[in-house]
Amino acid sequence: MTRRVPCPPAPGLLEAYAARFDDLFSTLAQRRGFREYLAGRLLPRDRNKTLTCLAGTEPVVGAQHPAVQRLQFFLSESTWDHERVNSRRVELLLADPATAPYRARRSGRRRMIGPGQDMRKRRGTTPRRVRTSPSPVPGHVPKGA
């Protein structure tokens, strides 16, 4: 078997994270494309969901830039298993205590607090409903009724 060619490192702390996925990619181009994709997603840019912005080029003029073409090929034509990459990502999130779901005390099931949820919902208690008195004005419907 031939020796694996090392990939150019990703910027900063991203390399340690990206290296955990290296065994899922068979070629140097795939490993490099994954690092470029991660860096493009995390860098603060105006349009971080377009290929040209992920590659760091201008929207219309840079569409034919080699970095954009490499990224396009990596995302659409390259033969890597996105399900294995996603399961590895979830596995890493669950293994880290900072991102692991909260384990409920009573039920033993894993639950996560999402946007718009508060601690009362997580504990299983709900706030009491405020009872509204009938409106003193005939024909007036109280707000929220």
Rank of each mutant, 00 (worst) to 15 (best):
R110W: 15
T50A: 04
Q64Y: 15
N48L: 10
P66V: 01
R35W: 11
L42W: 11
L94R: 13
G56R: 03
A63C: 06
A16N: 11
L51T: 08
R84T: 09
R84N: 05
E91G: 07
E15C: 03
Q117I: 05
T57V: 14
V5D: 05
D81Y: 08
L38V: 06
E36S: 12
V90L: 14
F73D: 10
G114H: 13
A29K: 13
Y17H: 12
T50K: 07
A100I: 10
T79H: 14
R111F: 07
L13N: 09
F21W: 13
V90W: 14
R110Y: 15
P97C: 05
A19T: 02
C7F: 04
Q30D: 02
I113C: 10
T27D: 01
E77H: 13
F21K: 08
R89Q: 12
R45I: 12
F25P: 01
T2E: 09
P66E: 04
R32D: 08
T52P: 00
V60C: 02
T99Q: 03
R111M: 11
A104I: 12
R3Y: 12
L94C: 05
A104H: 15
S107A: 09
M1H: 13
C53P: 00
A10R: 02
R31F: 04
A18W: 00
E36Y: 08
Y17C: 04
A95V: 04
F73W: 11
C7W: 08
R41M: 13
S87E: 12
T27S: 07
R45G: 04
A16T: 15
D96G: 00
L38K: 03
L71E: 00
G108R: 09
P9T: 06
R41Q: 11
V90C: 05
Y17E: 09
R111L: 14
R4N: 05
E83C: 07
N48P: 12
S76M: 08
A55F: 00
L71R: 07
Y37I: 01
A55H: 02
R45S: 11
R4Q: 09
L54P: 03
R84L: 14
A18F: 05
S107G: 05
A104Q: 11
R110S: 11
R32E: 10
F73G: 09
T27K: 00
T2A: 05
F21D: 00
E83F: 15
A100F: 02
R20C: 04
D118F: 12
K49W: 15
G40I: 07
P6M: 10
